[in-house]
Design a protein around this nucleic acid. Structure first.
Lengths: 168, 168
DNA sequence: CCGCTATATATAACATGTTATATAACATTC
DNA sequence: GAATGTTATATAACATGTTATATATAGCGG
């Protein structure tokens, strides 16, 4: 078995490590989403959630809300448009800005997700790292070990009422 | 100003958030590397560090050591080969395995990096989040705020002897 | 009103991760 | 020792982020 250098090097490789854990966690989250039979990618959800929370937003506002660059937002919104979850129309006062809103189908998806998938994911992630404390490198190690020991989807089984509301 | 939904949604969006912070941090790290005039990508360093620590490794071992998939390792090693930092030769006992070792140029780069760039990066990242403690979501918020307040490169100025050794 | 600058979005090119699969070398079994 | 399965690496196709740049609309100064 080979040493995990990224873990060993600590702060020096924190960037790689955060990305690596994020990718692993996102893949695990995708499993939970797929299990629910919703045809959507984990990375598309924050866009829908942003519009659900704030009402119609422009491409630029969405990029800001989700924390990626504008071209990335343009692409993801294009996908959601293709899937029929959002609708786009120019802002009445400024033809450059394009307002993205949820379609009925999109709103239904959000409402359904709020009631089922999102609480499940949030609870599973909270189960994974909710009680952690201490220096960040130790917490990251615990998260990696925790995921290896019991993947997210095995933590997401709903055994009672959802443990967490949608957000905060 | 638009609400940061990924931050607001907490555990539900932890995966996106880790990736996002990792990407930001890696871009910042790249600035420090570029400032030092070394023609290398931040993501390539862990491969060199792994070989430096463990001696020649196969592609598969490198993938494991760095925590990515084998095709990703194949690609990065191809780049490092192109750049002249590593050398590849088939394992004597098993023609399928390809042993990757540091060239003289690669070893020089590692030695130089160990003495200058790596301590600087590690110190800057430690400055950013070394004293943090508490729940992970709060630490991530502090890291994001910290990066926005003072980017990594402005934390990497060497004002005295390096605060941290390469690794531990 | 015209021309210049600024802003919003789209597009192109690239970086770097993934999964799925092809290929070649090794190992095993009858 | 030939057939079959396994393992190591390469390659293809795709996902999703980035930076750089093009284009269209808005806003402004003369």
């Amino acid at each position: 078995m080979v040493e995990d250098v990224v873990r060993t090097l600590g702060f020096l490789c924190l960037a790689s490590r955060l990305r690596r854990i994020g990718e692993r966690l996102q893949a695990d989250t995708q499993q939970v989403i797929d299990e629910a039979g919703v045809g959507i990618q984990a990375g598309q959800y924050p866009f829908l959630a942003a519009i659900d929370r704030a009402g119609p937003l422009t491409i630029g506002e969405l990029a800001q809300a989700v924390g990626i660059t504008q071209p990335g937002a343009t692409r993801t919104i294009g996908q959601l448009l293709e899937l029929g979850f959002v609708d786009i129309q120019p802002a009445p006062d400024d033809q450059r800005r394009r307002l993205v809103s949820l379609t009925d189908k999109g709103q239904e998806l959000v409402d359904h997700s709020k009631a089922t998938i999102w609480p499940r994911v949030a609870a599973a992630v909270a189960d994974l790292c909710g009680d952690l404390d201490g220096p960040i490198l130790e917490q990251l190690a615990a998260i990696e070990d925790g995921l290896a020991a019991l993947p997210l989807i095995r933590r997401s089984t709903v055994t009672g009422p959802p443990a967490l509301s949608t957000a905060q």
